[in-house]
Computed example of a mutant assay.
Amino acid sequence: MKKLLLAGLLSVGVLFAYNPLNGVKAQKAEAVKVVGNHFITVKTLKNWMKNNKNFEIVDVREPAEWNAGQIDYIETINLPRGVLYAGVKKGRLKPNKTYVFVCRTGHRALLAAATLYKWYDFKNVYVLKGGIKAWIKSGGLVTNAMHLGPVKIQLQK
Score class of each variant (00 low, 15 high):
M49Q: 15
P95S: 09
Q70D: 01
W48M: 15
F122Q: 08
N144P: 04
R104W: 02
P63I: 05
V12M: 12
N47Y: 08
N124G: 08
L45E: 10
Q154G: 00
A112M: 10
T98G: 11
I77K: 09
Q154T: 11
Y73Q: 12
L79C: 08
M49P: 04
I71Y: 02
N67R: 11
G140P: 03
S11G: 15
W66N: 00
G36S: 09
R108W: 07
V42D: 11
E65P: 01
K152T: 14
V14T: 09
A112R: 09
P80F: 01
W119E: 15
Y18D: 05
L148Y: 10
A31E: 01
A68T: 09
A109W: 02
L141W: 09
V83K: 12
K89G: 03
A145R: 07
E56A: 14
G149H: 14
L15Y: 11
A114K: 04
P63W: 13
N96Q: 13
Q27C: 01
I153G: 00
N37A: 08
G91Q: 06
S138M: 00
G13S: 10
A17N: 12
K123L: 02
V35Q: 04
A26N: 11
F101G: 07
V34G: 03
K28A: 10
N96M: 07
C103D: 14
D121L: 06
E62T: 00
M146N: 14
A26P: 00
S138F: 00
E62N: 06
Q27P: 01
W119C: 04
A64E: 12
L45A: 10
K25L: 13
G13V: 04
H38P: 02
D121E: 12
L4S: 09
G23E: 14
I71R: 03
G82Y: 10
V125R: 02
A113D: 08
K118G: 05
W48L: 13
F39R: 06
K152W: 05
V102E: 00
L93F: 06
S11Y: 07
L45Q: 09
K152V: 06
V12E: 01
G91C: 10
P20K: 13
F16N: 03
V34W: 02
K53D: 14
K46N: 11
A86L: 07
K137L: 09
F122T: 13
F16E: 05
V100A: 04
N47S: 15
E62K: 11
N47W: 03
H147S: 15
